[in-house]
């Protein structure tokens, strides 16, 4: 695939390990970079909104994207609690990029998954969610063919007009490993982004996630005998159809499969 004239920007964030909570390479963002590298190779641009912090762990997390073979990451410097969307939108308006790749949602903070949608809205681009692969890009007709992840491992093929924002799903191809040498050699190109404070979120209370109560099976039985029966009864289909004979059996199974729309 030669897409030399294609401008692809991948947005990266600093992830957070689900158990240890250490900063790490965000899994979906890494998949987005993998997809971008497959699409345009070294022409992939990478953008991160935030600060190069003094925390070495944060730096390592950000550098692990460089270790995937990127020469540099563009940094849009902004305060930690500021609203990244407006900063990014302001920057991206000047870029005229064809494809913007993001993850589906962040691994820290609010992680509402709104960023790609808001960027698409502000830049007037199309938006595709849960992308697993970009099959082809037709630069003449300004269209791309993408695969979208659906529940139950299914895939849907979509055609989308360029330019577009795509959020990359966990079902996309696994990202390559991050190599230490390139990660250390890679550069950060810092530019100062605008400052847009997030008015609302500082007022929220954030705590560690509590385990959600398991929903109880509520038995609305009037009598003790019914409650007893509900508590002790074996799980059974109750009145399943039984067929004998090869021909009848095969036909009955086929009918069921047809009814469920599987064949």
């Amino acid at each position: 695939m030669s897409n030399d004239n294609l401008s692809v920007i991948s947005l990266v964030s600093i992830g957070e390990h689900p158990t240890s909570r250490r900063p790490r390479r965000a899994e979906q963002d890494a998949r987005a970079i993998e997809l971008g590298l497959k699409l345009v190779g070294n022409n992939l641009q990478t953008l991160h909104a935030g600060q190069v912090s003094d925390d070495p762990r944060q730096q390592t997390a950000l550098r692990s994207y460089l270790g995937m073979g990127l020469a540099e990451i563009n940094l849009l410097e902004m305060p930690e609690q500021a609203d990244a969307i407006l900063v990014l939108a302001e920057h991206l308006k000047q870029q005229n990029s064809d494809i913007i790749l993001t993850g589906v949602r962040a691994e820290s903070g609010e992680s509402s998954g709104m960023l790609p949608y808001l960027l698409a809205e502000q830049l007037g681009m199309a938006m595709v969610t849960s992308v697993t692969d970009i099959l082809s890009v037709d630069e003449v007709n300004k269209q791309a063919e993408v695969l979208q992840a659906l529940p139950r491992g299914q895939r849907r093929k979509l055609k989308v007009d360029l330019p577009f924002v795509a959020s990359v799903d966990m079902a996309a191809a696994l990202p390559r490993q991050s190599a230490f040498g390139p990660a250390m050699r890679g550069q950060f190109e810092a530019t100062l982004g605008g400052i847009f404070a997030d008015q609302e979120s500082p007022l929220w209370q954030t705590t560690d996630a509590k385990k959600r109560p398991k929903r109880l099976k509520i038995v609305k039985a009037k009598t003790a005998a019914d409650r007893f029966k509900a508590a002790t009864a074996k799980a059974s289909g109750g009145g399943g159809k039984v067929v004998h004979g090869v021909e009848e059996s095969a036909q009955a199974i086929l009918d069921l499969l047809v009814e469920e729309g599987l064949v």
Binding site: E16, S108, E200, L203, T206, D208
Partner: peptide
Amino acid sequence: CRGSAGKSDITRP
């Protein structure tokens, strides 16, 4: 709400 990809709870209006 569940935030941080399921790691935190956010109480908000």
